[in-house]
Computed example of a mutant assay.
Amino acid sequence: MKRFFIGLTIVIILGLFVGTGYFLYQKSEEPPIIYETDTPFKTDIIKKTIATGSIVPRKEVALKSQVSGVVEKLYLEEGAQVKIGDLVAKIKIIPNVVALNNAQAQLQTAKINFDNSEKELKRQKELFDEKVISEFDYNQFLLDFNLRKQEVEAAENNLELIKEGSSQKTGNVSNLVRSTVNGMILDIPVKEGTFIIESNTFNEGTSIASVADMSEMIFEGKVDESEVGKINVGMDLSLSVGAIEGVIFNAKLEFISPKGESDEGAIKFDIKAAVDLKEEYFLRAGYSATADIILQKASDVLAIKESNLIFEGDDIFVEVRTGEQQFERRQVKTGLSDGINIQIAEGLTEEEVIKKL
């Protein structure tokens, strides 16, 4: 019995040794490496640069008043379509006290001179009828009378213009703001009751409204100095508008600024492009947009992922599958790249399989 237990103990110990050895052997063996593969494919490769900016009308005009005063009435709202001459606002003139007093004094002086001239003309007319003075002398007093009469009319018109912004003689109404172009009212920055300043030689004046032709829009953006040398006027742009997802608008580059400006530490150049509008979409002024400027394009070419290339000096290689998990290195010639896909000009066919790196 004792021998039986001894033998059983020996068997168990041997089994433990054998099991431990097998476990350690299995653990020491490296698992086989399985390489992932990829295949060449046909695609379009586009090399492009990106410009950020906004959509704005090509022509936008600010309407200003010819007189200072208070906005008495606004006749239209933002979004309204207007034509040349349409009434937009009426300005209530608040006369300048000094100018008003001067105009009243000038009118009073002109009336006094006119009355004196009229009396003198009547007296000289009697003398002329009695042949006491010559016709030449009489005409001098008649001329003075007409001049004094004209001074009174001019003073009255001047006073009326200062008080009302218009005169009966000229019929011009300077306190009415009318549209000078055809288009849409984009913005009315003032409200009824707002005090405004007239536009003149020395002052830009207060804007009453801005009007633009929304049928002709352009993209205004900026391009980094590292890319501006690669673009030219006439290039095609693809615009992605932030407010209209999934829709691409075509545009044609028509202006590149000859002078760059510093923007957050980088030199950037302004560009402009004419936008090809779509009838089903309304582009509002100020929409942010991103422009893809196509520098080069290759259509329907054989390509692979650029990450699958092996670079050694000036040579470029890929690893082509020759058997099950067997690959050989092969030199290839590449073409256009968009940063993700790269054109394979020579060295591969569409049917071959390459190692994925």
Rank of each mutant, 00 (worst) to 15 (best):
I133K: 02
G260Q: 05
V190I: 14
N157G: 08
I13R: 06
K252N: 06
I244F: 02
E279S: 14
E306A: 13
M184Q: 11
R321H: 02
I185N: 05
E319Y: 09
K73N: 11
F282Y: 14
T349I: 06
I344E: 05
Q106E: 15
V98C: 04
L142Y: 04
Q343D: 07
I316N: 06
Q168G: 12
I196E: 03
A289I: 00
A274S: 10
A289F: 02
L100M: 08
D315N: 15
V67T: 10
F317K: 07
A80S: 14
K47A: 15
E198H: 12
G171V: 05
L348V: 00
I231G: 07
G347E: 12
G79H: 04
M217K: 00
M217Q: 01
L176D: 12
N308Q: 10
N172Y: 13
L127I: 07
L74Q: 03
A251P: 00
A105W: 10
I256C: 05
I267S: 09
V70M: 08
E198P: 08
E328A: 13
S210F: 01
E346C: 05
V70T: 12
L186A: 00
F41Q: 04
K119L: 13
P32I: 14
M214Q: 01
I112M: 11
G260T: 04
A291I: 03
G69V: 07
I10V: 15
E261R: 11
S54Y: 14
E160P: 05
I354T: 11
N139V: 06
G335N: 04
L142M: 07
F128Q: 06
V211A: 02
D236C: 01
G69N: 10
I344M: 07
A110H: 02
M184C: 06
F128T: 03
F327P: 03
A105L: 15
G7V: 12
K47E: 15
L253M: 04
V98P: 02
K278F: 00
E319L: 13
G183S: 09
V70Y: 12
T334S: 02
A345D: 09
L63D: 09
L8E: 09
I340D: 09
G242P: 03
Q150G: 08
E351S: 15
V247H: 02
E216L: 04
I208T: 04
E351I: 10
V233D: 08
I304M: 13
E351T: 15
V98N: 11
L121W: 10
K59M: 07
M1Q: 13
K252H: 06
I310A: 02
E192K: 07
E118I: 10
N113L: 11
S166C: 09
I45W: 13
G53I: 01
V228A: 05
V132A: 10
E164G: 05
I294C: 03
L336G: 07
R284I: 00
K47H: 15
V353M: 09
V67C: 06
K305F: 14
I248C: 08
F41L: 05
T349W: 05
F317I: 08
K222I: 06
N157D: 15
